[in-house]
Simulated assay, not measured.
Amino acid sequence: MTDHQNISLDWMSSDGADLRPPADLRPEIPHPARMYDYYLGGKDNFPADRDAAERVMALGPMVKISALANRAFLQRAVRHLAEQGVKQFLDIGTGIPTAGNTHEIAQQVHLDARVAYLDNDPIVLVHSRALLAASHGTATVVHADLRDPAAILADPEVRQLIDLGQPVALLLFAILHFVDEADDPYAIVRQLVDALPSGSYLALSHGTSDFVPPADQGKGAAVYRSATAQLTTRPREQVLRFFDGLELLEPGLVTAPLWRPDQEPRSTDATTGIWAGVARKP
């Protein structure tokens, strides 16, 4: 497994750019993006991330199943949106890159598709910048926090790549459950969607405890209390509120494996702990 030493072995891109992250990686504190990387079988994580992730996964196999289902949903949703003609993607809370990233999927449909990735974890930024070094200006990664949508919309790198006068796909995969009620996640999403033109889309996934036995609810969130972001799972009716004023695409808000699946449903699909949906702005 990766440790702090071998994460920092290669900070130079192929074109000689210095990709070193900010000095404070806080490796001793679990980070949701690095925990998610571990759920997916990645190696870009620290011992604290692995320990926290193992404690969450000990609650049951559905944790890893949900992470994998979320990743697969991202890929199906991005492909579908690209096939609808969308060529611009704003991917917030992107996480550590792994196979089948947004720009890779979108550019299989449109070679000129543009993607702005945004995340607040320095490790994510480093790995994303290394990955995008050969993207020829069609993708960028920006240090940003979802809780400050005004700064995201005004960011010069975002504005240079993304034309807010043309349809945009706003991607919020597995990020809103790290925004608690005090930060008003509904207002954040509304501000972002309001800035997009008609014909844009919102695609999101959100963790839920709807299928967790009452006695076990809250146990996963308890582990995340030691991480850099707290976990707030939400029931289906609350997740549905994020789509207010938008036109949900079929099949509506469903568990991630059931959103336009490319294989026969399995027995666990209807109770996978993450809601998923895509909607169009009229």
Rank of each mutant, 00 (worst) to 15 (best):
P214Y: 13
L81R: 00
A256L: 05
D216N: 15
P47E: 03
R129N: 11
G199Y: 06
D163W: 06
P213L: 09
Q5A: 15
I96D: 00
A203G: 01
Q166V: 12
P97S: 08
T140R: 05
T208Q: 07
L19N: 07
D184V: 01
T2Y: 14
V278H: 00
I29M: 12
V189M: 03
Y36D: 00
P213S: 07
L196T: 07
T272Y: 04
H4Y: 14
Y36V: 07
K281C: 06
M12L: 12
A169G: 07
R241D: 07
D121C: 06
I162P: 01
E157Y: 06
Y224P: 08
H127Y: 14
P156I: 02
E157S: 12
M57E: 06
A169S: 10
V124L: 10
R147Y: 04
A77N: 02
R260T: 01
P122D: 03
I162Q: 03
D44E: 10
L90K: 04
N45S: 12
S205K: 10
Q5G: 15
I274E: 00
S200A: 03
A227Q: 02
P61I: 13
D180S: 12
G100W: 07
E83I: 09
V212G: 02
D216Y: 13
D269M: 08
N101M: 11
D184I: 02
G220L: 10
G100S: 11
T255L: 03
V254H: 05
R280Y: 03
D10C: 09
L171R: 09
V115N: 04
R50D: 00
P47V: 14
Y39R: 11
M35W: 03
A17W: 10
L253N: 01
M35P: 04
V179I: 13
F46L: 04
T140C: 15
W11M: 08
R147G: 04
A174F: 09
R26S: 10
P61H: 15
D180G: 15
W259L: 03
A276S: 09
L74G: 05
D49M: 14
G42A: 10
I105E: 01
F243Y: 11
L125K: 01
L161Y: 05
L253P: 01
M57R: 12
Q108V: 12
D184F: 06
R20A: 13
M62S: 13
N45I: 13
T138Y: 12
K87S: 07
L196N: 01
D91K: 13
W275T: 00
G207P: 05
L249A: 00
M57Q: 09
V86G: 01
R190P: 07
V179H: 13
A133L: 04
L240Y: 06
P257T: 01
A53S: 10
K43F: 12
F73S: 01
L176N: 05
L153N: 03
A134W: 10
R76Q: 06
L19A: 04
L118R: 02
L74Y: 04
Q263N: 13
A195W: 04
V141Y: 00
P185V: 02
F73Q: 00
E157F: 12
A116R: 02
V126A: 13
G277V: 00
P261R: 14
F89Q: 00
T102C: 07
T94K: 06
I105L: 10
K64L: 11
Y38D: 03
L258M: 08
G199S: 09
